[in-house]
Amino acid sequence: MIKRLILALIGLLIAGAVQAAPLKIVATSTSMGALVREVAGTRAELTVLASPDRDLHQLQAKPSMMRALRGADLVVAIGAELEVGWLPVAIASAANARIQPGQPGYFEAAAQVDLLDVGGPADRALGDVHPVGNPHLDLDPVRMATVASALAERLAQLDPAGADAYRRAAAAFAERVGQRVDQWRTRLDGAPGVVLYHRDAIYLLQRFGVPLLGTIEAVPGVPPTGRQLSDLVATLKGRDGAILFAPYQSPQAPLKLAGDLGWRAERLSLEPPLDADGDGYLNHIGRWVDVIAAGR
């Protein structure tokens, strides 16, 4: 009898401990943070490493990142070498065996879906190219729904007690994505197209069949010359479209192009706001859709 009581007590303690200690999750970007909030909710304690106005490719490893990664149960990255400059260093310096690539504590969105721009010559004359594929998949809501369900599975593996909650949340998110995507498809039907600074929104364009009319930088990571810009103007003169660039991209060239073509140039972050959850993310995509739709 006493034995049984003790066992029950121990069982309760363990259950209590499991519930009391949320998973410590570190997301590299706010889009990944939004997925974590959506799928894990209050079962996770979330830290986001980069604010939405930063270039995730250029960031430096900082001690505060290592501090956050030190006790993490899971790191959620966009991946495909987007964070290659700083995340591997930060993870190695964090001295946390659980979050090394290859461990269940390392989750990379790019490894869960098909990528665009895969292959291509590994030739730096073409700029900062990454033959592994274009990493900016987080602007495609449909791929993000797939990532959310893969994330739910990973969370279920790390915290089996919450498995049902994770899966339910991911399914609910996928459903909301489905609804919004249908609306957006109608809105973007016949959109004339956009000019990007960098090929960082191609997943969104491809999802809705919006033509990419050109990129301001001729090759990734190298600013355009005046000649390249005037060529772009010559090609696009008389057409409709919108110009989109990120906060960390130099506004000079986009604004000049907009002036020459009589288009709108809009500075839009690739990443949702710091506190975004699933809906915050979808509203962020909504802003992109609005700007692209206004291009006619």
Binding site: D117, G120, I202, L213
Partner: peptide, 12 residues
């Protein structure tokens, strides 16, 4: 979605 692509970085 790519009537025009940066040289060489198009999808394969």
């Amino acid at each position: 979605s790519q009537p025009m692509t940066a040289p060489g970085v198009g999808p394969v």
